[in-house]
Amino acid sequence: MLEIRNLHATVDGKAILKGVDLVVPTGEVHAIMGPNGSGKSTLSYVLAGRDGYEVTEGEILFDGEDIVGLDPSERAAKGIFLAFQYPLEIPGVATMTFLKTALNAQRRQRGEPELSTPDFMRRVKGAADRLNITQDMLRRGLNVGFSGGEKKRNEILQMALLEPKLAVLDETDSGLDIDALRVVSDGVNALRSPDRSMLVITHYQRLLDHIVPDKVHVLSAGRIVRTGGPELALELEAKGYADYQANAA
């Protein structure tokens, strides 16, 4: 599924990722934890293909294909989804329009027929109901006037509709209270599937109480420095990242 080999990346000429090796097999959920500044968000943007995040060495293989040269929209159409830490507000683009445009753009790129409006509406309604997203929210401008929790739910709604093969969740727990965290986590867990991999990027262990990973990796100073089971997250929660920051120096 996802195989990252010796990945080096720079932002504004500054080396952030310095040789990341990571394999996420199909159907597994892996967590990336690490201190601030370790390169977690950079890794998520590099996977999504954001401009300005330059891969200087190494490969990102997705279903065996190196995707480093691909545009973000091409990667999305191949099945990579990034749930944003801070989902953006786009006044003037109704959430419903955005969802339909995205879904049909991906289907077109994959050579699949576009969805009819009734079929699309049915899918949206089903997914929105499960996430407590109202019709009114869907009619409003994308994320405009949404609370932090509503924005994150809207990210999960997009993920549910777009049905990615790989979901990268970037600090999905940030800014969420306990109740919102539960709704979002339930939404994510409902999308766990033997055909879908997930990479859960988080600073804190609490998200992993809800979304229990198969493996936990520690990213520090641009490299994966340790890999373990879910218990590794508990250890980090208890001891903090001090050991890894020292190693990084």
Binding site: A48, G49, R50, D71, P72, S73, R75, A76, A77, F81, L82, F84, P87, L88, I90, P91, G92, V93, F98, T101, A102, L103, A105, Q106, Q109, G141, Q158, L162
Partner: peptide, 19 residues
């Protein structure tokens, strides 16, 4: 944000200008 949802660049720019 739009590109990452699979919307190609010309279409994404059109959407933003329209908005």
């Amino acid at each position: 944000y739009l590109l990452a949802r699979g919307i190609p660049r010309p279409e994404a720019e059109t959407l933003l200008v329209t908005a």
